[in-house]
Design a protein around this nucleic acid. Structure first.
Lengths: 136, 136
DNA sequence: TTCACTGCAAATCATTTGCAAGGCC
DNA sequence: GGCCTTGCAAATGATTTGCAGTGAA
């Protein structure tokens, strides 16, 4: 995924593509590891020395508002961000703290239930446990 | 749900039932609103004037460790706690911040998927949107 | 020129830690 | 006595806010 592709993607969401914003989106598209704010900041700092963590926060909050990324609440310590808004679940390893994408083969689990009490906008399906690397 | 029932429930999990611990468990059993630490503390303070928030934190962490309650990560602001460990989903209203229990009729969504990469201990199914009270 | 964006510093808020006092076996 | 529990105060760490400087349309 190139810088220009991230640039175009932002325009689709009517997000003005500044250098900082495009770099954050490019990073999210290329690193499907559901990074934290700190990880994004540390990764981009060398390339953009003036980057501040405030801008990373501002940028991610804007992306969420515009619907370009999803915030994951799977990890109680830090917010994590996912630019992949397609239907998939996540697995959180409580040993190493990594968040993995998790494809569930039953499509019906992703359907929004019908309930007159609730107007559902989105959902999150999260599994917890230990990953293979940590089990051995 | 009485104090004595909460007391017995704690014993089942090999949790020494102090006055503070039993009061926290009794509160969780009687208020299925997925309270935050602060809500629990504020509710119990009048009855137990010496209670400290540290003790509420200690107590809830102990309950989680022993498997007597589940921590919900549905709300990115505060941890929330649920003494009902049976299979059910949750709905988070992004307008009023309330967390509702949400029964999903399809039992298959609660089944742990089989995947050699992951050793699954638990899951959370969370829906986001606005509730009926906030829509009107 | 105007207005949105950026980034530093300070503030806020939830949670954890250190530690001393109290209570139970 | 010894250990577990409690609770205060301080520390930590993520996130937000205030605000002034910068840059683009």
């Amino acid at each position: 995924m190139t810088y220009m592709q991230a640039h175009r993607y932002l325009m689709q969401f009517a997000i003005r593509p500044s250098v900082q914003r495009t770099a954050v989106m490019e990073y999210l598209m290329n690193h499907k590891t559901h990074p934290t704010v700190d990880e994004i900041y540390l990764a981009l700092s060398p390339g953009i020395p003036t980057l501040s963590k405030t801008t990373v926060y501002n940028t991610l909050n804007l992306f969420i508002e515009k619907g370009a990324v999803q915030m994951l609440t799977i990890d109680e310590k830090n917010a994590r961000y996912d630019a992949d808004t397609s239907k998939h679940a996540h697995f959180y390893c409580s040993s190493c703290g990594k968040v993995y994408d998790f494809m569930i083969s039953k499509p019906e689990v992703y359907e929004f239930p019908v309930n007159p009490q609730f107007n559902i906008h989105s959902m999150q399906l999260s599994y917890y446990g230990t990953c293979k690397n940590c089990n051995n």
